[in-house]
Amino acid sequence: MLEVDGLTVAYGRVEALREATLSVGEGELVAVVGPNGAGKSTLLNTVAGRHRPRAGAVAFDGRDIVGAAPERIVGFGLALVPEGRHIFETLSVAENLRLGRMAGRGRTSAEDVRELVARRFPVLERYADTPAGRLSGGEQQQLAIARAMAAKPRMLMLDEPSLGLAPLMVDAVFELVVQLHAEGTSILLVEQNARRAVSLADRSYVLRSGRIVREGRREELLEDFEQMTSAYMGGG
């Protein structure tokens, strides 16, 4: 569904991502783990159209999306929930969700979104008219994911969804990821919380200093988690 081939991204002369190749299949949950500064966010942001790569190809559903504007890419059904949530704080919760629905270009009705919220994001229901900036961090993260899901994307990219959340909220967010995956959404999850992400994902990639240094299925990676830990902890 998503094919990233030899993707190289540079900020000035610094290469943040070097010839990264990875794929996410239909309905698959794939994690990308690695230390801070490894290029995880760069990877997602480039796929979402925020950076133009120096080299490489990105195909979504067989369509080349390199160089397409972010608003077009989300229109294709590939949604990014960026690091730090970036909900619209001055807008109400309902308005945030309505924006998400508009991104779906008619794929979802207002009724679909209401039902989605009731089923998967019940904490948001009673806050419809509240400015989103008043929600707690965990609620804001749920809103950020709900906003992306309101467009009924075919694939969801999550950048550090657990960052800065209280432990209970971290559990809730990971539980949400599992549920969305179980419902058939393809997910590309970027996390510093490596062990947790790897144990949820069907497959994982380990990114270090801009390069993919390891790839494997859940069992393989969990088996040699000790080595993987040294791969992503050591050196840097």
Partner: peptide, 24 residues
Amino acid sequence: TALGIQMRAAAEDFEMARLIGVNA
């Protein structure tokens, strides 16, 4: 209006507005 919500979203966080489909 929908247009107004998009304008306010763009005013608050232009990059994020584009990520959620607002045509810059």
